[in-house]
Nucleic acid binder design. Structure first.
Length: 546
RNA sequence: GUUUCGGUAGCUCAGUUGGAUAGAGCAACGGCCUUCUAAGCCGUCGGUCGGGGGUUCGAAUCCCUCCCGGAACGCCA
């Protein structure tokens, strides 16, 4: 809708410019941050100052003079340096109410992603322990982005890469072994790079319950390995589900080996002459593609480095025909990105088939001071702790509020308060208020016809604001999707909730005026739909009562 | 040392293809509940945009330089 209005404006400005004998010109139209500057503005008069050799103010006046008559803009003003500001007659927005109420959750959908199929990989934690707070940020970011991209018309596949093939699983088995033996007072030393989380102790106890002392007598290594991965992966899925995050594909690293994909990938790279042998190892020429140096892919002892299966994995993903691969990684992996992109370029000829979005660290504050995580002691704040103590919605919302690449702070004292310091309540309350009014209407026997399309009584600044925000939804979704900025959505949610609360305080919806009541009910019903939909894009539930 | 992210109001953060008096939430302060939910509304206070140069009609935004903090710099994963 705003897009249409913008198009109209452009057309009208061109007509005016033609009358002034100005050649076709790039007209910049923007939505002013300050609403007192109207709904749209242009700096065209300033741009033309040099060409026409007149002052911007003069030019602006000339443009306004020649501006065609129309029903879209009810006010056109000229401001200081030479801006021309346009105020939309909000009556042309009335039909958005009907549109929303009939399209419901499809309203705001876009087609800018048409034809694109994105694979978005995130979290991808090793199944060696519980998910901690860093994974939580990744999960929230990836899932929200996926939802937003879908809304914008992209096809999206969410994928979790399970690192179940490497050395870490070996260490996991040894760690379980140590914890298991300890239960029988047969202490075994924890491995050097062992996993110290309390969930490993719980895991060992489960094994003790199910199998008694069986693995004191026989070697339990293979069993611990398999059991551990299954158990932890299962827990991990549960934790993510409780956080509102579901994946389409769980891709096992082990599968790469089973299907010989790593060997095949290395063969391909050799054939393309991107490898060479040196010091008894096999190197990949990543420096030819922007990496700062070449990387070893087969060590001198014959084993692979970390990147090797990962390259095979990304090649496998490419073979599935996605138009883009997105990896969401922790910021500490930034040095890893160039070598991965180099490999992608070796296969596809262009590195931007892969987009890596980095998340910066989360600093956790508790009792006013920073909580330091420690692998050794197993001390960490887990995702399940967060969901249990604080709740899914505030955590999801809080993560979505921040841009991905900012260092963020999570204040647990604040999050635990569950007061209005958590902005998510503000939005949920707006939704609940509307639901409440709807209930009142039903009780009073008011017949709610949300599909009315004639509006005669909606006339106030608060309503104009609501309509303006509702109309803007699609733009916001598109911007959030293309720029990968989920916080654009939470900002929008806040803007809409604010407009609703402000309106609610000013005007009663249900009155004796039947006509007005019906129109207002249709309006707030539309607000309710968009609020709920926008919240869903960041994985937050809308509530009907609070 | 190199790479990378960040430094914007008391706090947490938006805003960076150059544009109008730099925004939001929270905190603080002052009002508003006989009326559909006060988890709300209305208003006030609050900033050398890390420092210094430069580019121009115009810089938080672009260029140079310096300072401070996080992270990464393996034939670890």
């Amino acid at each position: 809708m705003t897009v249409m209005v913008e198009k109209d404006l452009r057309k009208m400005l061109n007509i005016a410019l033609k009358k002034l004998d100005v050649e076709q010109h790039d007209i910049e139209i923007e939505v002013p941050k300050d609403t007192t500057h109207g709904d749209f503005s242009t700096n065209i008069a300033m741009k033309l100052a040099r060409v026409l050799r007149k002052s911007p103010m003069q030019i602006a006046e000339m443009i306004v003079e020649e501006f065609p008559n129309n029903e879209v803009f009810k006010e056109i003003t000229i401001a200081k340096p030479g801006f021309i500001n346009f105020v939309v007659d909000k009556r042309i927005y009335y039909n958005v109410i009907t549109e929303i109420n009939s399209e419901r959750e499809l309203y705001g959908s876009s087609s800018i992603g048409h034809g694109e199929h994105y694979n978005i990989e995130f979290v991808s934690a090793n199944p060696t322990g519980s998910l901690h707070i860093g994974h939580a940020r990744g999960a929230a970011a990836g899932d929200s982005l996926a939802r937003i991209l879908k809304k914008a018309g992209y096809r999206v596949t969410k994928e979790f890469y399970v690192n179940d093939g490497g050395n870490q699983i070996h260490n996991l088995a040894l760690s379980i072994n140590a914890r298991y033996k300890a239960l029988f007072n047969e202490p075994v030393e924890m491995p050097e790079d062992g996993y110290y989380g309390k969930e490993i102790i719980a895991l060992a106890k489960t094994i003790q319950l199910e199998h008694g002392d069986r693995y004191l007598k026989e070697d339990g290594y293979a069993f611990f390995r398999q059991y551990g991965v299954d158990y932890l992966l299962d827990q991990l899925k549960t934790d993510l589900r409780n956080f509102g995050v579901e994946f389409d594909i769980w891709f096992s690293e082990a599968k790469l080996y089973e299907e010989k994909l790593v060997e095949k990938t290395i063969e391909t790279l050799k054939e393309k002459d991107y490898t060479y042998e040196k010091d008894n190892a096999l190197w990949l020429k990543t420096s030819e593609f922007g990496d700062e140096k070449d990387r070893v892919i087969i060590k001198s002892d014959g084993s692979y480095t970390y990147v090797t299966p990962d390259i095979a994995y990304h090649k496998e993903k490419l073979s599935r025909g996605y138009t883009k691969l997105i990896d969401i990684l922790g910021g500490d992996h930034h040095g890893y990105v160039p070598r991965l992109k180099a490999a992608i370029e070796m296969f596809t000829g262009q590195s931007d088939y892969l987009e890596v979005d980095l998340l910066q660290m989360v600093k956790v504050i508790q009792n006013g001071e920073e909580v330091k995580m420690s692998k050794r002691s197993g001390k960490a704040i887990t995702l399940s702790d967060l969901v249990e103590d604080v709740g899914k919605d505030p955590i999801r919302y809080f993560f979505a509020m921040r841009s991905l690449n900012t260092h963020m702070e999570l204040d647990l004292d604040l999050a635990l308060k569950q007061t209005n310091e958590n902005p998510v309540f503000y939005a949920q309350y707006a939704h609940a208020r509307i639901a409440s009014v709807m209930r009142q209407a039903a009780e009073k026997g008011v017949h709610v016809n949300t599909l009315i399309n004639q509006f005669e009584t909606l006339d106030s600044d608060k309503i104009d604001t609501l309509l303006t925000v509702l109309v803007d939804y699609k733009n916001v979704v598109e911007e959030a999707a293309t720029k990968r900025i989920p916080h654009k959505i939470t900002q929008y949610i806040h803007r809409l909730a604010q407009a609703l609360h402000s309106y609610y305080a000013e005007e009663k919806v249900i009155t004796d005026d039947e006509r007005a009541t019906k129109e207002r009910l249709a309006l707030i019903h539309a607000v309710k739909i968009v609020l709920k939909d926008a919240l869903s894009l960041v994985g937050v539930d809308a509530k009907d009562r609070m």
